[in-house]
């Protein structure tokens, strides 16, 4: 198999962007009853526009920073039937937490609720928007399953619901969907759960149409999980390049894009563009993907705004270098 001659390279935010110091103050004040929701809403809207404008200038997709989201799961856990919001639980990254979703009965999607929670700025440019959703495997792994059904059955149900969700969002003009699924590499599924995960993504894929689906993983060496990742039907499979030796990566599946988390928000140290380009090229040479999607490995909101912006600019530099000089 020969590598595609004109392999396109894209880049974009893959998760929440940090709230500005002004938003930090405002949300704290709201929390303590010292500010009204209206003022904070105005600030959110202005901040989302700023982030989206920066993304528009630098990248392929826009997110608006998902500044209002308290965690990745809340938009589902607070709106779909069967879910409630449970205890504060440590997330995979430094000093961050989420509210564990509790599933008391088989979940039922409530139409319109996910769309309503997307940053409003995305509604103005749905064709460029990257819609974030918690991957079905990760959601099933983190939730407190009280349904009496197996986790595999829950994953399958989530796959079906996400297929419906995609159909609804596609009708609104959205065309890029990222399933953030870090548990696929943190605790790779096997047996029944692996089958259920593959089935869930097949169900989602059947609803994909002409849209782009990205499965984004991070936070662990993806190598042990490639057995599963390489069989996931999706447009792009993302891995955390800061967690893996690029030279050890095997060839990837034909016709699938490669997502590479190359910006590490766990340090303020800026990435070295020369080294990064070299490692990206090595990964691409090994995996031979149809396209390359670059982004921050983990959530950029692990950083304060200033270093986050510096890292975004560095990501844009690396994107430009790869486009200019060729990815592989």
């Amino acid at each position: 198999m020969s590598a595609p001659p004109n392999r396109p390279v894209f880049a974009g935010l893959t998760s929440a962007y940090p709230r500005s110091e002004e938003l930090v103050r405002a949300t704290r004040d709201l929390d303590r009853g010292r500010a009204g929701a209206g003022a904070v809403e105005t600030l959110y809207a202005a901040s989302e526009k700023e982030v989206a404008a920066l993304e528009e200038r630098l990248f392929t997709t826009i997110t608006g920073g998902y500044l209002r989201w308290n965690d990745l799961f809340r938009p589902i856990a607070e709106s779909w039937t069967g879910f409630s919001v449970g205890p504060l639980t440590r997330w995979l990254e430094t000093n961050t937490f989420f509210r564990q979703p509790v599933l008391a009965q088989p979940p039922v999607r409530v139409p319109g609720t996910v769309a309503a929670r997307l940053p409003p700025v995305l509604g103005q440019r749905p064709e460029k928007a990257r819609v974030l959703l918690p991957g079905p495997y990760t959601l099933a792994r983190v939730l407190d399953n009280r349904t009496g059904e197996s986790d595999g059955a829950v994953v399958a149900r989530l796959g079906a619901l996400y297929a419906e969700e995609l159909a609804e969002l596609r009708a609104l003009g959205f065309g890029t969907f990222q399933f953030t699924d870090p548990y696929l590499v943190r605790e790779p599924p096997d047996g029944v759960l692996e089958t259920a995960t593959l089935d869930a993504y097949r169900t989602i894929d059947a609803a994909r149409g002409s849209s782009t689906t990205i499965v984004w993983t991070y936070g662990a060496d993806p190598t042990p999980a490639l057995r599963t990742l390489d069989r996931l039907p999706a447009s792009v499979i993302g891995i955390d390049l800061t967690e893996v030796e690029a030279a050890s990566l095997p060839a990837g599946p034909e016709g699938v894009g490669l997502g590479l988390g190359i910006i590490d928000p766990r340090t303020t140290l800026p990435e070295n563009p020369v080294e990064t380009v070299k490692v990206v090229r090595e990964a691409v040479r090994r995996r031979r993907p149809s396209s390359v999607w670059l982004g921050p490995a983990a959530s950029l909101d692990l950083l304060p705004t200033k270093p986050a912006e510096q890292k975004l600019l560095r990501l844009a530099d690396i994107l430009q270098a790869l486009r200019r000089e060729g990815v592989a």
Binding site: T242, T268, E275, V279, P307
Partner: peptide, 22 residues
Amino acid sequence: ADWSFNEYYLARQPGWRGRPQR
């Protein structure tokens, strides 16, 4: 250490800063 950003010690690591260097 985990709740800080590690800049000084990481900068001393040569080349690409992957998992072993981190």
